[in-house]
C-alpha cells in the first residue's frame, strides 16, 4: 500500500526536479533570427574529447595571419601555446614567437620591450574606441573566451540530450557557421523588408544578419605550414573555419582535456564508492525492518 503511494510521489518529485533543471536554462541561449546552425564533428566533444594538436596549430596560424589583425585575445598568454593539451608548440617556438611582439611595459626603456612567454597576446588596438574607428564603427570582440560566449538554441528534445551528452560545443558550431554564412548579396532567404546598411555584410547566422566584419576567409587565403605529422589538409574556407573555431574553443577552455580526464577517474571512483556504500548500508540495515 504505502509502497505504491511512495512510488507515485517519488515519480512526481523526480519528474519535477528533472524538468525544472532541464527546461529552464536552455531556451534562453542563443542568437535571434539566425538560421539553424549545423553541428560539427569536434574532436573535443564528449567524455573522451581531446584537442587535435595539428588542428590547433593550423587554427592558430589562421588566427594569427587573419583574425589577429583586428581581434585581440588578451587572456591568452604565449606560454599557453606550449602547454600540454593545447597546440603544444615547443617552448623555443613560443619564445621566438613572443619576441616578435612589442609589449607595453612602463618599466622598460621607451615604454616597450620584446615579448616573453609569460606575456599575454597584445591587442591590435590600444582601446575599444580606436578599434571601432578602424572598423567602421563595429567593435571586433576579443577572442579569449568568445567560443564560450556564443551559443546555439537547440530545439526540443535535443537540448534535453545535451545534459546527458555534455554537449558544450555550440559556440564552436556557431563560429564555424558564421564564417561560412556570408552572402555577396542579400539573399532571398532574408527577412522581409531587410535592407543592408552601408558597410555591413549579410550573414545567415549573425543575429540580425547585418555583420560589420567583411568575409575574413576564402579558399586559399592562408597557406598552411605542414603539420608535424606531414598530413596536408585542403586549404579551403571550410577547413579554415573548422580549424580556427577549434583553436578558439581551446583558447576559451585551455584545460578541457585535463578536466575531462580527471572527470572520468572521478566518476569511476564515485560509482565504485557508491556501490560500496550501498552494500555497507544494506548490510547494516539488514536486521532492521523499515
Amino acid at each position: 500500500m504505502t509502497g505504491a503511494k511512495t512510488m507515485f510521489k517519488t515519480k512526481i518529485i523526480i519528474a519535477a526536479v528533472a524538468a525544472m533543471v532541464g527546461l529552464a536554462s536552455l531556451p534562453a541561449q542563443g542568437a535571434e533570427g539566425g538560421a539553424h546552425v549545423e553541428r560539427q564533428n569536434w574532436s573535443f566533444a564528449g567524455i573522451f574529447g581531446t584537442y587535435d594538436q595539428n588542428q590547433l596549430q593550423r587554427g592558430f596560424q589562421v588566427f594569427r595571419e587573419v583574425c589577429a589583425s583586428c581581434h585581440g585575445a588578451n587572456l591568452m598568454a604565449f606560454r599557453n601555446l606550449s602547454e600540454p593539451g593545447g597546440p603544444s608548440f615547443s617552448e623555443e617556438q613560443v619564445k621566438a614567437l613572443a619576441a616578435e611582439f612589442e609589449i607595453a611595459d612602463a618599466t622598460a626603456e621607451g615604454g616597450v620591450r620584446a615579448g616573453v612567454a609569460a606575456d599575454r597576446w597584445p591587442s591590435p588596438f590600444a582601446n575599444d574606441q580606436e578599434a571601432r574607428d578602424a572598423n567602421g564603427g563595429s567593435l571586433p570582440p576579443d577572442f579569449s573566451v568568445l567560443a564560450k560566449a556564443r551559443g546555439v538554441t537547440d530545439p526540443f528534445p535535443t537540448w534535453v540530450f545535451n545534459y546527458f551528452t555534455g554537449y558544450q560545443e555550440g559556440g564552436a558550431d556557431y563560429i564555424h557557421a558564421l564564417l561560412n554564412g556570408y552572402h555577396e548579396e542579400v539573399p532571398e532567404t532574408a527577412p522581409e523588408g531587410f535592407e543592408l546598411a552601408e558597410g555591413k555584410y549579410y550573414n545567415d547566422y549573425f543575429p540580425g544578419h547585418a555583420i560589420g566584419m567583411a568575409p575574413p576567409l576564402a579558399d586559399g587565403s592562408v597557406t598552411y605550414t605542414p603539420g608535424e605529422d606531414g598530413v596536408t589538409v585542403p586549404e579551403t574556407l571550410e577547413q579554415y573555419s573548422t580549424d580556427v573555431a577549434a583553436f578558439m574553443m581551446w583558447m576559451a577552455e585551455p584545460h578541457l582535456v585535463a578536466r575531462k580526464q580527471t572527470g572520468f577517474v572521478v566518476l569511476l571512483f564515485l560509482v565504485l564508492f557508491a556501490g560500496l556504500m550501498y552494500a555497507t548500508k544494506r548490510k547494516l540495515w539488514a536486521g532492521i525492518e523499515h
Binding site: F269, L272, F273, L276, M277, A279, T280, K283
Partner: peptide
C-alpha cells in the same frame, strides 16, 4: 565478510577524501 566490507568502504572513502 561484514568487517571486510566496512574496512574496504572506509579505505576507499579515505582515498577519496585525500584526493
Amino acid at each position: 565478510r561484514r568487517d571486510f566490507l566496512y574496512v574496504a568502504t572506509g579505505a576507499v572513502g579515505a582515498v577519496g577524501a585525500a584526493a
